[in-house]
Amino acid sequence: MEVKRNQLSAWLYLLPTIILMAIFTVYPLIRSFFMAFAENYNYMTDTWSSIGINNFRIILGEGSEFLQYLKTTCLIVIISVPISVVLSLLIAVGLNSIKKLTKLYQTIFFMPYVTNSIAIGMVFSVMFAGDKSIVNYVLELLGIGGQNWLGGVSTYGNHASYVSQMTVLLIYIVWHSLPFKILVLLSGLQGIDKQYYQAAQIDSASKFTVLTKITVPLLSPQIAFLTTTSFIGAFKEYSSVIGLFGAKEGATGGHYDMRTIVGYIYASLTDLNVGEACAGAVVLFVIIMVFTLLKNFISRKQIHY
């Protein structure tokens, strides 16, 4: 009797969340799955002609823009995730070994996390765009020579290459994703017993050995967590593209279209191509799921405790 009442009140407490989740998360999830397979879906009348895989055939078919966006997204994932994890690890280890002004440095490194990504994107485009941009100025000084990074009219040509646009985008994404990773790794580092390092010192381990044989394995739970979340995050990359290339995402003004999958989904929705948007979402879902399962399979062997 008592148990039953307890259970009842537990469900009662959960009810508001459950209702909200059901309306705004679970239902749309199921619905979008369905809509991905509905052909000629009419958003206004909620009608469709038949159920089939036509939407997928369109977006994955030859000459489809979607494949280009998929390629951009995958490039972002494959390049930015490893770089940002390794970089944040090195910075975290460095920060952890600093004795003075640790708090100040931690604050500085955490700044990008609390700054609006569109604002950062604008700053980046100022830094990179045009003849007089600071990056080109520095490159000229170093004798490397500037580039047309983001398109538009410039002395370096009126078109930016895919590579240079991708470079800027990757720098932006990596830089923006560092603070959270550094924070997680720092707290992980501070949780490691100092005696392991003393033991390693007595065992004549070099700094490099300590990093690779002790710090990284002991941080493996945090590294695995960060790898998973940033894989998923990078597949959903969107706001960085908007921040750098504007709402048109680079479709105009002499630069390449840097749209990502999420960007494509948004654009399709605005064009009322609901079926194609949903099909894109399903493809993204499948990719993320496969990656996550793969990662879980690998990390079961790699995480040490």
């Binding site: 017993d193 005696q195 392991y196 003393q198 033991a199 044989k213 002790i214 394995p217 002991l218 493996s220 040490h304 405790y305």
Partner: peptide, 8 residues
């Protein structure tokens, strides 16, 4: 507390 490397 021995400080054995737990992952080895």
């Amino acid at each position: 507390n021995y400080a054995l490397y737990p992952h080895m």
